[in-house]
Amino acid sequence: MKHVLSILVHNQPGVLVRVAGMFSRRGFNIHSLAVGTTYDTECSRITVVVCGDDGILDQVIKQLEKLVEVVAIQILPQDSAVRRGMAMIKISAGDKRGEVLKLADVFRASVVDVSEHTVTFEITGDEDKINAFAEVLAPYGIMELVRTGLVGLARGDNTIHQYERRNFHEQIVL
């Protein structure tokens, strides 16, 4: 089972290694990982898709909470969060170019590059949508594919900041 976790971390050198290292060291599986800055220059936000049952999710969260740079952790469940990834897919279009462009339209994928023999699409959506689009394109010959890890936000008033406990490791773990 896949879980999406959003982690707010202090921007310190090595923080990504520390987070990723915890996963590999303890044998947790990361399905995807996305890292980026936030509007707060002191913090970055990491979105991880973890595979495992609820027990594993519980351990992942507790182990993450022990990392000194972790400020907040939020679970982003499918039904109460918006979760998106992006992919770019390059195909050898050939004479079926028109057909492919129509398919892309159905998926609301946009064309970001065209050459004599190739078309590159950009598609944004949840995992299933991107998978479906890739499947549809496969028969035309996918030359290469790249996708980002999922990012997401909870719906409504819910934000990661309500899980923020700047010094929570000092009170609980330290």
């Binding site: 351990q59 507790k62 182990q63 909470e65 022990k66 609980i172 773990v173």
Partner: peptide, 9 residues
């Protein structure tokens, strides 16, 4: 235990 991660580990 003092470490929450030890519970159920």
């Amino acid at each position: 235990d003092i470490d929450p991660a030890e519970i159920d580990k």
